[in-house]
Design a protein around this nucleic acid. Structure first.
Lengths: 97, 97
DNA sequence: TTATAATATGAGTCAATGCTCATATGTCAC
DNA sequence: GTGACATATGAGCATTGACTCATATTATAA
């Protein structure tokens, strides 16, 4: 296999990995509907503050989400339109279009 | 979050997980181009026979691929058109459309 | 039947990863 | 300043997952 193709496939794997965890995918599904602070996300997912924050950190490092500070609160929202599109396509494929 | 939605998201996670391993994704990328036996796949990926076979087993259990026996050889091919479509979309998103 | 080739599989190992727990940091109100 | 709240983060732990190694199975050929 050509080196070029290998690298492209690695990038593709990395993209799909973003979506391959239940907590992360629920965060993404929620952020598609708008901007939310950590508490709201954590409450909505019924996941601990810490676990939520760790995943948000990861999504931020991966340039999937961006943040906006407002006092004590930190609001998260989707950064990349690819994420929303791929999520919706994957969702519809998984649930029989 | 509604139970229904939770289940749908779990299904979506499971779908994305199929694509979230380098070896598996290369197998899928290859099988998009046709039908191949284990040896051919293993050679092409430069991955051991055993590792290849384990991943093929997994893909088979997940109904991603089907097999056809011809003497000693077992030919694998894609079973589900969703897989090809989602792979190609993910690939193009990952590599900047 | 025996040998050889192709594939499958079980056990064990190791690395990756997502969690919890405790604590740190940051911001506001008093 | 102190206290209360929101968020972040590091360490440790448990689980998952992909690999290797050895061996089993299956099929053909001699």
């Amino acid at each position: 296999m050509a080196k070029r193709k290998q690298k492209d496939i690695k990038l593709t794997v990395d993209l799909f990995k973003i979506f391959s965890d239940y907590t992360r995918l629920r965060i993404i599904a929620l952020l598609i509907t708008g901007e939310f602070c950590v508490q709201e996300i954590s409450d909505h997912l019924k996941t601990s503050q810490s676990a939520t924050s760790h995943q948000l950190r990861m999504l931020r490092d991966l340039n999937v989400v961006k943040t906006r500070k407002e006092g004590k609160l930190v609001y998260y929202s989707l950064l990349d339109h690819h994420i929303k599109e791929l999520y919706l396509i994957g969702y519809s494929h998984a649930n029989e279009c």
